[in-house]
Write a protein that binds this DNA or RNA. Structure first.
Lengths: 108, 108
DNA sequence: ACAAAATGCAATCATTTGACTGCGTAAATT
DNA sequence: AATTTACGCAGTCAAATGATTGCATTTTGT
């Protein structure tokens, strides 16, 4: 059980884990606090946290007996990098931004 | 088997399906042609295509006995929308673009 | 009309997933 | 020192996943 096949794409496939990400993005939270937001058992949530931690989407920070988990947003870049090439196929705003970039060649 | 839990996040969780997406992004392809790019059986690939089609990442276009599958990039926006709030936490370039946007209030 | 080609559909099977309960351990509280 | 609190780890189990093979169906080509 729990092979090392875990990657970021697999991690965000689960809706509960996506919710955990959105919670922890606002502030670091303990497993107990996170579990309190769901109807699942603490251990179930704990396992989700473990999966997110394994692929480094979450980082731990222990203080006494409490462990605070906070988001490591950089890891989500993997997803963004996958999406990026397709973005320009739909995102008009992105095209507009690109145009602005071209119009401002030496802006910095 | 194959419940209706299929969503876009689940669809892109599989590496084979991500490769299929990248292939079809370049040009519409038939299942046979797609399968030819992998070492898996044709039916295995066919099933992946089915999953991608079910959640509308791929669209069919039948011509005779051949079915061309092409990418529906809009569906990937779901993923982008999830990532977007976290993007500004890592993407320096994005911040720069935002700054430029602010500096150019009436640019269009 | 018949054979070949391009697909989809069904059945099967090992593995993974996501939920659960129970237990162990370390830190805080009394 | 004993109890409570906050965790993690191990085991279990039903369901989902991802692969397979075999067969049916429709279109194309001879």
């Amino acid at each position: 059980m729990m092979k090392l096949r875990r990657d970021v794409f697999q991690a965000i496939a689960d809706p509960t884990r996506r919710t955990i990400i959105s919670l922890v993005a606002l502030q670091a939270m303990t497993p107990g606090a996170i579990a309190g937001e769901f109807d699942f058992s603490r251990q179930t949530i704990s396992k989700h946290i473990q999966i997110l931690t394994e692929c480094e989407i979450l980082k731990q920070e222990q203080t006494g007996r409490e462990i605070y988990y906070h988001l490591n947003p950089e890891k989500l870049k993997t997803i963004a990098d996958f999406i990026e090439p397709y973005r320009k196929m739909w995102d008009e705003r992105f095209d507009k931004l690109e145009a602005i970039m071209k119009d401002q060649p030496k802006s910095t």
